[in-house]
Nucleic acid binder design. Structure first.
Length: 562
RNA sequence: GCUCCCGUAGUUUAAUGGAUAGAAUGCCUCCCUCCGAAGGAGGCGCUGCAGGUUCGAUUCCUGCCGGGAGCACCA
């Protein structure tokens, strides 16, 4: 019932008219008042058939009128669109699914597929910054939309546990005398080390020595600080993942990809890589890109080589059909070169071809005050805590069972919504006031609509309202100008599109529209003591489940109360 | 200089080549004897410029203007 039927029927009708090869689409019309589905088939077929679009539309309509089940009305509109209006029975059937079917909204685009999704990628010894927050929100949402499409998803996180930043943090720990640091002290230590590194050649030399000692494990004191720092840092990240709702299956570390990368580059020189000024490089110019260094002149692997090692580690860890990596968009060009090199390496060719790079932009702030106020950079976690505090203030007037938890959920929802509301790759402006104002476009707006629907359903049931609809007559009459049910039925195709394009923001956009439609409906309709209590309750249940499932797809928590 | 990405209401944004470019915010009105007003109803306001392809362009192509990122031993 629905889209697939309509597509097939149009295909048949086109064949009958002698225009079988024509490409057309069946989609939701921009304005649902036009119908539940629309097709441009007549417009597309007009030219090959040598007729006017309206003429073709008339002929198609005549064929389709005989063919389709579940459609109440077919209309021709505008330049030659054909609009389909589903029957009451068909709509009711879909709404019942939306209200009760546990598999509501699932699709099978990735049936029997395994996908590895790598995201977040923070570096131990350093702070969890806003880029990591964005990568996490997007990666988690992609992972969930893929699972919703039937995929088995392997969540992976790649962390830089060796390199100059580690040496800087250890240097800082030594200076500050922190033998058993907290994660905050570790952050301080890194900041100190990083500034010292720029300060003088002497400090730089010392830190470079520590870096070497970390790789070679020659200094017991360094080894000890390395071990404790790594542990504290990773444990702290786990707390954040828990709050954000992510659970990784695999953690990859640079300490393991280094050696693999070195070996891979070595084995493929000079066939793929070549020596240049003492370094080993890949000449990307031959494929329209640019040259990058894979092994520096000291013989150490750069990020490029380590990423090749990472590809190998991934292959060794699990079998999968597709690999998705989420990073900041500043790595776009870099990633192309790395993948181009990987494609020339026999052992990596296959995975390189299966890899998709998804990028996110940078987060900017509408108000510059937030950073200056604390006198330091806004990290991912300071942003989270800040928003959480603000949410708590907003909720003071309410009596909640667990205000602390709700504040955390609202904060996570506010931030994730901001990241997931627009197409990936573009910079994001985070407006603290706006994201928490809870008016209009925001995470809390969706959360509020969901808890409100849930509360309504609960009260209606307690009042003895049943969701069993006696007559389909009630459905149509009740509708009037309220398109809530006709909007609800499109949820599954939205999830499918998000999975297909790896673009979770389609879900965000749809949910915002649904929440708005529900709020408007709510203002006009009474469920308990209303004219059509059963269908109204069914709709409220459908909204509750659809918003609930949609929020789950986005990884946005749905508080029971707020 | 070269490569890539992006220009949509004052601001933040949506739109597989389709119908009157959809929201939010902002500003101006209005709505709680009623299931949650963190809500709802109405009003004002937008595709950078110039060409091209097309029945039809925010979308594709070319040029220009404007912004961002990357371009050899950082990650």
């Amino acid at each position: 019932m629905g889209k697939d039927n309509i597509e097939q029927a149009i295909q048949k009708a086109l064949e009958a008219l002698g225009a079988s090869g024509v490409a057309f689409v069946v989609e939701r019309p921009g304005d649902l008042a036009h119908g539940d589905y629309a097709t441009n088939a007549a417009l597309a077929a007009a030219k090959p058939l040598g007729k006017s679009p309206r003429e073709v539309a008339e002929e198609l309509k005549a064929k389709l009128d005989e063919e389709i089940e579940g459609v109440e009305k077919i209309e021709i509109a505008g330049p030659g669109f054909i609009n389909f209006r589903l029957s009451r029975e068909a709509i009711l059937g879909e709404v019942q699914k939306a209200a009760t079917d546990k598999s509501w909204g699932q699709n099978d685009l990735y049936k029997n597929k395994t996908v590895m999704v790598e995201y977040t990628d923070p570096n131990p010894f350093k702070e969890f910054h806003i880029g990591h927050l964005m990568s996490n929100a997007i990666g988690e949402a992609i992972a969930r939309t893929l699972e919703n499409a039937g995929a088995k998803v392997i969540r992976a996180n790649y962390q830089g546990d060796v390199g100059p930043h580690v040496a800087k943090a250890i240097f800082g720990l030594l200076e500050l005398g922190f033998e058993n640091p907290t994660s905050e002290q570790l952050g301080q230590a890194y900041v100190l080390g990083a500034s010292r590194y720029e300060e003088s050649a002497e400090y730089k030399k010392r830190i470079d020595e520590i870096n070497k000692a970390v790789y070679e494990k020659t200094d017991p004191e360094v080894n000890a600080l390395y071990a404790i720092g790594r542990k504290v840092s990773l444990a702290h990240f786990e707390e954040l993942y828990k709050m954000l709702g992510t659970k990784f299956e695999h953690y990859f570390f640079e300490s393991e990809t280094s050696a693999k990368g070195l070996a891979l580059v070595g084995e493929n020189t000079p066939s793929v890589f070549e020596k240049s000024d003492g370094a080993v490089v890949y000449k990307g110019e031959k494929v329209g890109l640019h040259t990058r260094v894979f092994i520096n002149s000291q013989g150490l692997p750069t990020y490029e080589a380590k990423d090749l090692g990472l590809l190998q580690s991934k292959i060794e860890k699990a079998a999968f059909d597709q690999s998705v990596t989420v990073t900041a968009n500043e790595q776009t060009e870099y990633f192309k070169v790395m993948l181009a090199a990987a494609k020339e390496i026999p052992a990596l060719q296959n995975i390189a071809e299966k890899t998709t790079h998804v990028v996110h932009g940078m987060m900017r702030f509408a108000e510059g005050k937030m950073s200056s106020r604390k006198g330091n950079v806004i990290t991912g976690e300071s942003l989270l805590m800040d928003i959480q505090e603000a949410a708590k203030e907003k909720m003071q007037s309410r009596e909640l069972a667990d205000a602390e938890k709700v504040a955390s959920q609202v904060a996570v929802g506010a931030i994730k919504y901001t990241v997931l509301k627009q197409g990936s790759g573009k910079d994001i402006v985070f407006d603290r006031e706006k994201s928490l104002s809870l008016e209009g476009d925001s995470g809390p707006y969706l959360q509020y609509a969901h808890t409100r629907a849930a509360s309504l359903v609960q009260k209606a049931r307690a009042a003895g309202v049943s969701d069993k609809v006696e007559s389909v007559q009630d459905v149509e009459e009740f509708l009037g100008a309220l398109m809530l049910d006709r909007l609800l039925i499109h949820y599954p195709s939205v999830g499918a599109r998000a999975a297909h394009e790896l673009e979770p923001h389609h879900v965000t956009t749809y949910l915002t529209e649904l929440a708005a439609a529900f709020n408007s409906w709510y203002a006009q309709v009474r469920v308990i003591d209303g004219d059509y209590p059963s269908y109204a309750l069914l709709l409220a249940e459908a909204v509750e489940q659809t918003l609930g499932k949609g929020l789950e797809l986005l990884g946005i928590p749905a508080p029971k109360e707020m």
